[in-house]
């Protein structure tokens, strides 16, 4: 990088092998857009929650393939970038209403979890810093609670599945576990049940109708004057 580039606050990045100079401080996603790419797929909330923009990169002079969410990670000088638009991962069809939270239920739908060799590559690939291997192992012994606890912050980006040498899809396994745990094991939240009942009984129909019919000005006023929980 020449002195003038540094003065201009730019860094060098390589997108699919070609060199670009992009402003310092941009996220990977913005840097690629700056360079002229347009994201049609593989981009979503841009806030680090939706999991669509998982990506891999490498820094010049380093052998390690690193992972990140393209909307979160800012570019560094000498970054090799690419885009991973989609993970074509296994996801069997199931009806959660018809399942039971049995010990073998995860193995029944995802028998390939039995192939886990505990290499921990999935954990290293997780941009959310989850202990992915530990929850795959918990899945193997049917511990739905542990899988749910360890995978709670999963955003389903798919990087664990891309990196797994035995083609396990950890994030989909965990999603099934959380669904079953939430539906069949976790204690019901009484206040939520009560509120759902009230909604079904039509307690809020009138208020809802008023809101729907209100003018933009009225809505604005009500919004600014609303109670804010602190």
């Amino acid at each position: 990088m020449s002195k003038s580039d540094v003065d201009e606050g730019k860094v060098r990045v390589y997108i699919m092998g070609r060199e670009y100079k992009v402003p310092f401080g941009l996220t990977i996603m913005k840097a690629m857009e700056y360079a002229g790419y347009r994201f049609i797929r593989g981009a979503g909330c841009r806030g680090g929650f939706c999991g669509s923009c998982a990506t891999v990169y490498r820094i010049e002079g380093d052998y390690k393939l690193r992972v990140a969410l393209a909307c979160q990670k800012t570019v560094e000088d000498g970054m090799y970038l690419t885009q991973l638009p989609f993970t074509p991962a296994n996801k069997p069809v199931y009806d959660v209403e018809k399942l039971s939270p049995s010990v073998n239920v995860l193995l029944e739908y995802y028998p390939e979890i039995a192939k886990c060799v505990s290499c921990n590559t999935c954990t290293k690939a997780c941009p959310q810093d989850l202990e992915v291997m530990d929850y795959v192992q918990a899945a193997l012994r049917g511990d739905l609670e542990e899988v749910s606890r360890l995978s709670f912050d999963c955003i389903g980006c798919g990087l664990c599945a891309m990196r797994c040498p035995t083609s396990i899809v950890p994030y989909n396994v965990a999603q099934l576990a959380r669904r079953l745990y939430g539906k069949y094991v976790m204690p019901r939240a009484k206040h939520v049940d009560d509120r759902v009942k009230e909604v079904e009984e039509g307690k809020f129909d009138e208020e809802m109708k008023n809101l729907m019919e209100a003018s933009l000005d009225v809505l604005k006023e009500r919004y600014t004057k609303r109670d804010i929980e602190k």
């Binding site: 886990c116 060799v117 505990s118 291997m133 530990d134 192992q137 193997l140």
Partner: peptide, 14 residues
């Protein structure tokens, strides 16, 4: 008189 203490963290034996 033996207390078997489960490993706090463990994975499949392999």
């Amino acid at each position: 008189g033996i207390e078997m203490v489960e490993l706090p963290r463990w994975n499949c034996c392999g």
